[in-house]
C-alpha cells in the first residue's frame, strides 16, 4: 500500500523538478517572503521584535496563491491526456493515487519552507526568539498548506482543464481564507460562530501566535481529509 503511494509521489516530485515548476515556485516563494520579511513594509527591523510573525503572515498569502498553481495539473492533466485510465487500470487504488499526489505537493511546500529556516537562524542571532511559537507557526503553515492542497486536488479532479482547476481552487480557498472570517463579523449567534470556526485565518493566526490547540489541528486535518476524499470520489466516479 505505502509503496504504491510512494511510487506516485516520487514520479510527481520528479516531474516538478524536471519541469521548471519547482524552481519557479521556490524562487518566487523565497523571493516574496524574503522581500517582505526583511526589506520592506513592516519588516522585522521596524517591529523591533525577534519573531517571524511577518514571515508567517506573508507566507500565508503567497502559499494561498501558489498551492492552486501546483495542484491544478495534478489530476486535470491526467483526465485530459487520458493517462488516468493507465493509472486506474494498474495495481493501484484511487486512494493511493490521490495520497501519492497529495504527498508530493506537501513535500514540495515542505522543501520551500525548509529553505526559510535560514530566516529563523538569523533572527535567533539578533534577539531572543520564542522557539515554541516559531515551531507552532511553521506547523500552522504546513497544516494550512495541506488543507489547500486538499482543496486544490479536489478542484483538479473534477475537470480536465487546468485553468478551471486553478480558478476553482482559488474560489473555494478565498472563502476559507478570509470571506468566512469577514462574514462572521457581521453575523452573530450560531451562524457567526460557525463562520468564524470555518475561517482558515482564525485557526492559522492562533497557531502563528504560538497557541497549540487541538481544535486548530483538527480543523485543518478535517479540511484536508474532506478534500482528499472528494478527489478520490471524483476520480473513481470516472470508473462508473
Amino acid at each position: 500500500m505505502n509503496n504504491s503511494v510512494w511510487i506516485i509521489t516520487k514520479k510527481e516530485l520528479n516531474s516538478f523538478f524536471d519541469s521548471l515548476t519547482a524552481y519557479i515556485l521556490l524562487i518566487a516563494f523565497l523571493g516574496f517572503s524574503g522581500f517582505f520579511t526583511w526589506i520592506t513594509g513592516s519588516d522585522i527591523f521596524m517591529r523591533k521584535e525577534a519573531d517571524l510573525e511577518v514571515f508567517f503572515s506573508v507566507s500565508k498569502w503567497t502559499l494561498f496563491f501558489f498551492i492552486p498553481a501546483i495542484t491544478m495539473k495534478m489530476i486535470a492533466e491526467e483526465n485530459k491526456s487520458g493517462t488516468i485510465e493507465l493509472l486506474l487500470t494498474k495495481a493501484i487504488t484511487a486512494r493511493q493515487i490521490i495520497l501519492g499526489k497529495f504527498l508530493a505537493c506537501l513535500l514540495l511546500i515542505g522543501i520551500a519552507l525548509l529553505f526559510t529556516i535560514s530566516y529563523y537562524i538569523t533572527v535567533s542571532q539578533i534577539g531572543n526568539i520564542d522557539h515554541g511559537a516559531t515551531l507552532c507557526g511553521y506547523l500552522g503553515l504546513l497544516l494550512m498548506s495541506a488543507a489547500y492542497i486538499g482543496i486544490g486536488l479536489f478542484a483538479s479532479s473534477i475537470t480536465n482543464n487546468q485553468i478551471v482547476a486553478f480558478l476553482l481552487a482559488l474560489l473555494i480557498g478565498v472563502f476559507f481564507h478570509f470571506i468566512f472570517d469577514m462574514m462572521s463579523y457581521n453575523s452573530g449567534g450560531f451562524v457567526g460562530q460557525l463562520l468564524s470556526g470555518l475561517s482558515v485565518n482564525r485557526h492559522f493566526e492562533s497557531l502563528a501566535q504560538g497557541v497549540l490547540d487541538t481544535k486548530d489541528i483538527l480543523f485543518f486535518a478535517s479540511l484536508t481529509i474532506v478534500g482528499l476524499l472528494l478527489s478520490e470520489l471524483f476520480i473513481s466516479k470516472r470508473i462508473k
Partner: peptide, 28 residues
C-alpha cells in the same frame, strides 16, 4: 492484466526508460 488503451495515452514529458520503470513499479 496488461492493457494498451485506445489512443494510447502516455506521459509526454517522461523519458521512455523512466516511464517503463514507473509502469513496472506500479504493477508491483
Amino acid at each position: 492484466i496488461g492493457y494498451l488503451p485506445e489512443h494510447n495515452p502516455l506521459y509526454e514529458d517522461m523519458p521512455v526508460m523512466d516511464y517503463l520503470a514507473f509502469a513496472a513499479a506500479l504493477q508491483s
